[in-house]
Amino acid sequence: MENSKFMQLMERFFLPIADKLNNNRYLSALRDGFMVALPIIIFGSIFVVIANIPFLDQLLSEDAYNAYKDALGPASAATLSIMGMFVIVGIAYKLTAYYEGDAIYGGVTALASFLILTPQVLEDVTGVIPTSSLGAEGLFLGILTAFISTEIFRFFVQKNWMIKMPPGVPEAVSRSFSSLIPISFTLTIFLLIRILFSITPFETIQNFIYSVIQEPITALGSGLPAAIIAVLLIQVFWFFGLHGQIIVNSIMDPIWMTLSLENYEAYQAGEERLHIVNNQFIDTFIVGMGGSGMTMAVILGLFIVAKSRQLKQLSKIGGPPSVFNVNEPIIFGLPIILNPLVLIPWLLAPVVITIVTYFSMAIGLVPCFYWSTCTMDDSNLHRWNADNKFDCWWNYAVS
């Protein structure tokens, strides 16, 4: 009876929240926009691995090793370092498509709006955009720009402020002229925003966003409490049959990806700073062990100790997909969903792993993440700092 009341309370509280988050057009566009950039991110990550093969610097001469890295450097510089640009286009494209508008024009308008806001000055040299503005530092502003520019673009389209071409004009030409006025008005608004911020103490909207909004939120998301809350919510949503990873990641991915980018940039610059919690931390230790809830351990337990023929068969069916972090056969087949008998371990096991992993990295027992991979330097791996604690930032390869 108590279990029934508890389940009713959970359903009444969590299901409406999860449903709203799952169906929110902005969160859906955010999630799908990152997926648009995913192939490019993976490409860049692969070449980070190839460019940082362990011990290669000991096998090659210094000149040969530098030439090797210089030859492969553009692969990551043109992808990971400017990842924000691809995400902006992806988010605006998906949001415009949700409104059944001309998605490609929504995407390029968002990108142009972002570039208008971006100062084109680097160390007193004009006409140059620093890649940092297109990467981690600009990601949060890029996401906001994608949302706002799409809404402004849609507003002018709905007002029918468009140039109508006569019949017989090629479709591509007609679409281009139809989008001319909405695009022009949208970009003009962002130009005015840039001019207004230029007369404020912040000088640029980037400075305002980063110092007032992005930095505090990013700092909050990099801490252990935020990671625990996110992991708990993922597990709770899954318990009710909702894809907790998608729902929570829609909100947290911009923060975690920014932290990952900052780690990558710190590694590239040789700086001694690193965020323990980032996108790779979550993907590897929370999702990367058989899927959400680390169900690979459940499969191994069923295979080894289960006496039920049904559970044995379930472990055989769920085993191969779990290697690729697909655990729906276990979640729905055991079942874990709406099963009060497994609720407590289902909620607490990932939290325990999160806490243990976090403190293992914090004390230097194991190294922290940079991006998808980094190189391991044995001379630095065991180096202690002045406070007799392991430095958490040392180079280490983790895929």
Results as ranks from 00 to 15, higher is better:
Y358I: 08
I129N: 02
R175H: 13
S179L: 09
I199N: 14
V287N: 09
D19E: 13
G127Y: 08
S222K: 08
G244T: 03
F147H: 02
S399R: 12
E137R: 15
F155Y: 15
L115I: 11
D70C: 01
L334G: 07
L347R: 00
S260G: 07
E265V: 08
V48M: 05
I304K: 08
I336P: 01
M10F: 09
G107E: 12
V169R: 02
A18K: 09
G241W: 12
G135F: 10
I104Y: 15
L224W: 05
Y93R: 11
P201L: 14
T126K: 14
S292V: 13
Q235C: 08
A77Q: 15
E271D: 10
F202Y: 14
F153D: 02
A112T: 01
L9D: 05
Q58E: 04
F6P: 09
I286H: 08
I234W: 03
I331R: 15
F114Y: 03
K316N: 07
F281K: 01
A18F: 04
R309N: 15
P216V: 03
T188M: 14
A386E: 12
L60P: 00
I353D: 10
Y26G: 02
I229F: 08
G101H: 06
D63M: 12
S133N: 13
F197P: 03
I17K: 11
C374I: 08
L341C: 04
L300C: 15
G293Q: 00
L381E: 06
E215A: 12
G135M: 12
